[in-house]
Computed example of a mutant assay.
Amino acid sequence: MELRKLRERAGLSTSAAAALLGVNQSRISNIEAGRYAVGADRVRTMARNYKCADDALIEALAAMTGGRTRGWWDAYQELLPAPLMDLAELEHHAFGLRVALAIHIPGLLQTTDHARALFQEVVPQLRAHEVEHRLSYRMKRQAVLHGERAIPYTAIVHEAALRMQFGGRATSLGQLEHLLEMSELDNITLRVIPFGNGSFSGNGQPIDYVSGAVPPLDTVQLDVHHGCEFLDADAELAKYRTVLDRLEGSSLSPSASRDFIKRLAQGL
């Protein structure tokens, strides 16, 4: 996809790009569709043909070539929708994550009990073993926040999400206490938007902004009614960076957010 974007920015057709590379047109189409593997040297050649002067982007693309290694998410390919595999792989390779939610707690910060209560409310209703598959998948995704390669993570959560008592009082209290614990980690920034702050950019749609090795490789993931939607166009990336910046500006500081959550927990 990135090679296709570079070609289109250069104003080249697939036939013109093929002529520059010395291959037939179908080879370019198959490379851009992900049907053919492409090596690092060929990526550099194609980028040069497309007059790309962004060396950092070229090297980031070259680093993405080579044999694909299997990830833990591959075990779920026949159990969960395909976009969830893409989301787990994106998070695994991310250099940073920014999320914003109005109604729900971010998936990477959910407790097991809270997540199970959510999955039990899915329509159409999931069977017991399907709930457990989704639950184990969500918990494994959370590994990106821990260990030697723990990625920077900023979560902007509205007060409404904190007050939703999915699973009842005990589950909600456990979830708030878990948020407080996670917010103490060096790589995690948790910010709350109280009802009293008034302004709220965007339409309340959950946003996941996944940072790549360089900004042109960023991706936005949106939760929509029919599943996941992934965006990587420059204009869309810029739009959602602005939305997240405004939401962050409407939120409490990390320390004030922790105090806010403590008060909510004490009131349960």
Rank of each mutant, 00 (worst) to 15 (best):
Y76R: 03
M139W: 05
E91N: 12
D186G: 05
T171V: 11
G267M: 05
G212N: 08
G66E: 13
R149T: 06
G67Y: 00
P83A: 07
G267L: 07
E2R: 13
V123N: 07
L108H: 06
T111M: 07
I156W: 04
R48A: 07
L268H: 15
I261R: 12
M182E: 14
P106S: 05
T111K: 07
K140P: 10
A115I: 01
H158N: 12
G11K: 05
F166M: 14
T45F: 08
S211H: 08
A88M: 13
A75N: 10
C52W: 04
T171K: 06
G11M: 03
D259R: 06
A37T: 12
A94K: 13
N49M: 05
D245K: 04
M46S: 09
S13V: 12
F166G: 02
G147C: 06
I156A: 02
V192F: 03
G202V: 09
I261N: 01
A117I: 05
R9V: 05
G167E: 11
Q25G: 12
A117Y: 06
Y36Q: 02
E236W: 06
T65Y: 12
R138M: 04
Y240S: 07
T242I: 13
E148R: 13
G96R: 05
S13A: 03
L118V: 00
M85F: 15
I103D: 10
N203K: 03
L185T: 02
G66T: 11
Q142C: 08
A37W: 03
M164R: 13
I105C: 04
R42W: 10
R241L: 14
L135Y: 07
V122F: 13
A235Q: 09
A94C: 11
R44M: 04
L61W: 13
L173I: 03
L217K: 15
T111W: 03
Y153V: 02
T154E: 14
G204K: 09
D234V: 07
T242W: 06
L268K: 00
L6G: 03
L135S: 06
S29C: 01
V220T: 12
L217H: 09
L101Q: 15
I31L: 10
E130V: 10
